[in-house]
Nucleic acid binder design. Structure first.
Lengths: 196, 196
DNA sequence: GTCTATACGAAGATAGAC
DNA sequence: GTCTATCTTCGTATAGAC
């Protein structure tokens, strides 16, 4: 398979971005981690680092959407738990050394194109998550707002957990978020009961 | 004043960290931005970049605590607005090119000491903010949780706003947070009314 | 498709003059 | 306290052989 090296490069770059940030991720690091041929980088990514990084956060995007898809059709709290679980697992498996690669790129990008790409990914997450919440019974506006809130608080919680090297702040935020979402769920059920 | 150059270096480093991240902040950048003498860096910070960055996020810490202090003694929603206002102003003044320097260091730090330092700052913010919320009438546990929630969601909202180059996600999160905090305020008032 | 070699600049850090 | 010069390492990127 000719694109095997390419895929390894993308996966490795995503992991390194999540751990060391954009400036801390060099080609040498990526090659060392993945074992991919050095010559493959510019073969598959003639645009250089920007193009490789873009592909890496695209992968992070797809991974997130995939991780969220089993929550489709489930209740609001289940969707919330699914999203939180994704981040909790990342923190646990990495012993708090990894976070969100899209966030890492956002706060360190030097090219406007990379920032815009990160922005599109976040928009995509917001839209996708809002879709799940709408399916779960929330009104469109409520779902939109809740999705953005959920993403922002989760991202922040991951950063706090990394900095403190502890799951505690993440757990605190998870509890608050679940409480908030449960309430939205109840309000939606109440409205539905009143109007049917 | 002999420490004038030192102060300029620290301020400039903090600003650059907030804009370009840790890896994107070089001594050359700092010297150019601040106009400080090149020779001053290792004179005031013999520990090199780590020591300078540490001083920079210490300044960010103090700035945040100072910005929050006028909220002391005010209601829960006022404390919340004060905290959110600090970040909103940063986003607006920088046209979405700047964020939190402590977050930037957290996601890109290569030395354990720097991460731990960032962790201590976040802990400090959580404690300080919880103190204000307790003064405002929340119970200690509720105040602790709400403070962490507020910080996490704000940090995440700043990242989303930067990525999308828009205040919209930040506004959405602000609204949700205020709604949540208002509710805690009401619950606390109710309990107080019942027990007095 | 992948390799080695290398160009070229920039990074952090150090030494010694002033 | 500040300067210039320099060391060394590392970064991205390119060229050309295989």
């Amino acid at each position: 398979m000719s694109s095997d090296a390419r895929q390894r490069l993308v996966v490795g770059t995503m992991q390194l971005l999540a751990r060391r940030g954009l400036g801390g991720t060099s080609f040498a690091d990526v090659v060392e981690l993945t074992g991919a041929p050095r010559g493959s980088i510019y073969h598959y990514f003639p645009g250089g680092k920007d193009e490789l990084v873009q592909a890496a956060i695209d992968l992070a995007n797809e991974n997130a959407l995939t991780a969220l898809s089993p929550a489709s059709g489930k209740p609001v709290t289940e969707v919330t738990k699914q999203f939180l679980g994704m981040w909790r697992e990342l923190l646990a498996r990495s012993s708090f050394t990894a976070g969100c690669s899209v966030l890492a790129v956002t706060v360190a990008a030097e090219s406007a194109g990379l920032i815009d790409h990160a922005g599109e990914i976040f928009r995509r997450w917001r839209r996708d998550l809002a879709g799940h919440l709408t399916t779960a019974g929330l009104g469109p506006d409520t779902a939109d707002a809740a999705a953005t809130f959920l993403i922002a608080a989760s991202e922040g919680a991951v950063v706090l957990a990394r900095a403190e090297r502890s799951m505690e702040p993440f757990n605190v935020v998870s509890t608050q978020l679940l409480s908030y979402m449960r309430q939205l769920e109840n309000e939606a059920d109440t409205i539905e009961a009143e109007t049917t």
